[in-house]
């Protein structure tokens, strides 16, 4: 499957163009372009199988940091394949380059846009629109945060024990000043012991 893969130049061009365009299309967050990413990475460019795409999605969700790092793994796999004919070392080198290119391509175009908006925001300190956004969007954001907590808790393996743990931890976070990291780590230990 690697012998008939396109050359590294073409692959890297595809990585750059795909993720730079997804970067500007991802209105509402990185997860909104997952379907399009899947179509291109699996069906158009043949970088990986359906199963592999689902697995790197799971890895990127689980790992610390922004879940958009799925693009790091997609770029890694694309580079890995076009380096494989040249031996295992070359495969890892091109994999690493593909990963870095994909990550940069996904972050920089949208990042520039946010930067420009942030600049306007800073210069509009006393404008009515800024007052309106700061006051008016706050209740919406609280609702969206609650919605994302709700959606996260609806994942398949959130059973009654996980709900109980979530409830207890929520109580701790709201009523005490315990360092959240300690609570998350303890919850991880409970998971490791298969108590959750």
């Amino acid at each position: 499957m690697t012998s008939d893969s396109p050359g590294a130049g073409i692959t890297f061009y595809h990585i750059l163009m795909l993720f730079a365009s997804l970067s500007l299309m991802s209105i509402g967050g990185g997860n909104t372009v997952i379907p399009e990413m899947h179509t291109k990475a699996v069906n158009s460019f043949d970088w990986m199988t359906d199963k592999q795409f689902a697995d790197i999605f799971a890895i990127s969700q689980a790992a610390p940091g922004p879940s958009v790092l799925i693009v790091t793994l997609a770029g890694y796999k694309a580079g890995l394949d076009c380096g494989t004919p040249f031996g295992p070392v070359m495969a890892q080198v091109l994999g690493l380059l593909g990963a870095l290119l994909a990550t940069a391509a996904m972050m920089i175009p949208a990042g520039i846009l946010v930067f420009l908006v942030a600049r306007v925001w800073e210069s509009a300190k006393d404008s009515a629109i800024r007052h309106a956004i700061e006051k008016g969007f706050a209740p919406l954001t609280v609702g969206l945060v609650l919605a994302s907590g709700y959606v996260m808790s609806r994942t398949a393996d959130h059973d009654w024990r996980a709900y109980l743990l979530t409830a207890v931890c929520t109580g701790i976070f709201v009523t005490t000043k315990t360092n959240p990291l300690v609570v998350v780590a303890l919850a991880g230990v409970l998971g490791y012991l298969n108590l959750v």
Binding site: A62, V145, T155, H158, T166, A167, V168, A187, G188, G191
Partner: peptide, 20 residues
Amino acid sequence: SILKGAAAAAVALTLSMAIK
């Protein structure tokens, strides 16, 4: 399995943010 426990606490942190 570690993640499953940590995720339950992460959901809790998100909920507590909504409450606070």
